[in-house]
Design a binder for these strands. Sequence first.
RNA 1: GCAGGGGUGCCCGAGCUUGGUCUAAAGGGUAGGGCUUAGGACCCUAUGCGCAUAGGCGCUUCGUGGGUUCAAAUCCCACCCCCUGCACCA
Length: 827
Amino acid sequence: MDEIAEKWQRKWEEEMAFEVHEDPRKPKFYCLEMFPYPSGSGLHMGHAFNYTIGDIYARYKRMNGYNVLYPMGYDSFGLPAENAAIKEGVHPKEYTEKAISNFIRQQKKLGLSYDWNRIIKTHTPEYYKWDQWIFLQMFKKGLAYKKKAPVSYCPKCQTVLANEQIHDGKCWRHKDTDVEIKYLEQWFFKITDYVEELYNEIDNLKEWPERIKAMQKNWIGKSEGTEIQFMINGKPWRIFTTRPDTIYGVTFLVISAHHPHLYELVTPENRESVDRYIKSLKTVKEEDIETMEKEGVFTGSYALHPLTGEKIPVYAGNFVVAEYGSGMVMAVPAHDQRDFEFAKKYSIPIKVVIQPKDRELKAEEMKRAYTEEGNLVNSEQFTGMNSREAIGKITEYLSKKGIGKKAIMYKLRDWLISRQRYWGTPIPIIYCERCGTVPVPEEDLPVTLPERVRFGEGNPLLTNEEFIRTKCPKCGGAARRETDTMDTFVNSSWYFLRYTDPNNEKEIFSKEKASYWTPVDTYIGGAEHACMHLIYFRFYTKFLRDIGLINYREPVKRLFNQGMVHGPDGVVMSKSRGNVVDPLEMIEKYNVDTLRIYLVSTAGPDKDFIWSDETIQSSYRFVERIKLYFSNVKIGMSDKKTESKLNILIREVTSSVEEFKYNIAVIKLRQFFEYLEDKEEKTESKDVLSSFLKLLHPFCPHITEELWEKIGNNKSGKEFISLSEWPKADENKINLQYEKEEQMAKNLAADINNVAKLIKGKGAKIKKAYVYCLPNEKQGYMDNLEMVKRSIEMDIQVYAVNEKEKYDPQNKAQKAKPGKPAIYLEI
RNA sequence: GCAGGGGUGCCCGAGCUUGGUCUAAAGGGUAGGGCUUAGGACCCUAUGCGCAUAGGCGCUUCGUGGGUUCAAAUCCCACCCCCUGCACCA
């Protein structure tokens, strides 16, 4: 057992060392890690890495005079708890609470400096009450709404999913399970009301990783183009295109085979073939999308070309996405590869309307679509115009005629939050036969999740009649409660605000407290949340701003993505692969400080790294050597050189930590420590030793606390190094001459070794080295003589060239040059 | 296909913003030596190639090929490869 760690973890807790309160006199700093889902299997190395990175930063900022809010909580609603209930018969609540206490116990062992008084657990009514409250605010504004829509359903989860939770047509939790499309009435949040701001603001997130920003932009998927009306059977149908310049090349239209209004276009004589085609789609769907051929079927209807009035066949096709744009496209086979393939397959005419500058396209000779720019041909009055220019001109022309307009299209769709599962926040809605859909009045919140339910097939909430049966808040008549619960991403969309006032029973949080602490200054977590949590999080922030609770636009100033921890075999750690290293075991085997410093030693914390059993031992030895050193060192005076080196170190460690270059900081700390260790004189000033410990403290909080006390800094027992002031570099104490001399001494040692090698090659044995340097350099060499001696492993005598009494049998002294002393090795 | 990030010595991994002091930090591994009864730990040296009986010299390295410059791992251009995310988005 590690007594030192236990001792200090206990003391920090007893003295409530990391408890914080609003203090207008101090600058605040909000350091946040993505809170975990408390899984039953406990903390893994990825967690340990994540929290170590954050804790180092929190401790560093605290020592720099910031009032640091550094909280922890648990995203404790979610499917795994419910699945465990089905499998093992444990109630999700019991399962979750056990997992949370296990998490807390393990996190405390890591020496994390959280303010444990601010814990939040999203499965408690005290917390989810406010999820429901936000829902009601959204409902009031029309941002929470119910609609019947084609939604994706995972048969394994037995619930519908948000778009963000579907990857490659599979469930995010079940990579082997295709999602099914069902038409259901579901609750949505109207995130699309904020789509423009969500997109545009990405560029203002200066301290977010490019990768995340790119992923979000990609996900939101803005594209600018033109909306054009086509008349079909006397009714207008809209299509969206980014290439209105190719409009004269349209030879057919394609409507998505999944389009809800497809059958309005299907003529009776084509009905059977369309039906057959739609049915066949399901079997195709299981195959790989990449290899899927462009296919379709004629609907029987014709559209009129809006400019030429030509008759254009309308097809239903598998390559048009129903949910994007209007679910229908104009097809220009000559200038779009997909349309080209489709046209070839069904022998639809290809009409070239854009000619490249350097050659001439002939429709019948084309092997693939020409998608670059060029000059328009066969395009009435636009013929001859450059295609880029034509995009604007044709759009203008269409909008003058009232059959088209500029349009911006986004891929982002409304957030489907309904889940047909138990372990989540109940949606505060009541259905009354007479009054319809009625929101639960705010004063009746929370709608508590009943504990007595049966798990098995379907939504467990349906098994508790007491919960379902209720009175209509409007008319008092019999009514039923909504039994869907909310997506757990709802809970994590605003938790950073609740930490500022976690126990408030009257309101979601105090505006004053929230405005003191938020927004979050640094948010640390993995990149897997780029398109889910981090978008919802931003959306909520904007909504809460709009209802006047906060006054900023973005929740997080600086986002930091940590790398992935790979097992010793080089593959990402995973239980199924069996290459996990358990952080708790490592703490037992070595100690916490070793684990912490090791985790940030190998590479920058934003990089993936491979766990190495050898390297952690080197960290262990480092920690042990520090303890040993401090048990021998005497307190007294330090020399100027040491002070110079210390101040350089302060400068370097400070900037490295600030920039999250922890690995560099560790290297510098090690180099300085090795210098201390190698010194003959084992006496240092308390100031030097204290400063060194402070710089090391964020990495190794326990031993530094212990040694800090040992050298007499914590007499009252409450003056923790954790709460001490970060050292400031005193530029006046830095003298680079020392570094220069050290370098010269190193060069000298290398020279002597080189000469010795040549002589030894001849078989000679060297008795002693004589060195003749310029008089002004002698002191520098003398000061570093021990180091030189050690690396050349022979006795050495240094003379200044002008010394009369020197031993110089071969008259080498005359060869001495500045920075390059003469050498005589005696055989 | 689109977007973002990368390619550095045996491995891992800094450096590239602000070109030179870079054959290129730190760690690991390997080899040789010291210490030791032995092992471990610890300490020293070496670790691109070649030559050299006095600290020297030459050649070759930072994905590939060009360019800018007195000077490039670092700046510019083109290309190749790898990773990640999205993807039939019109």
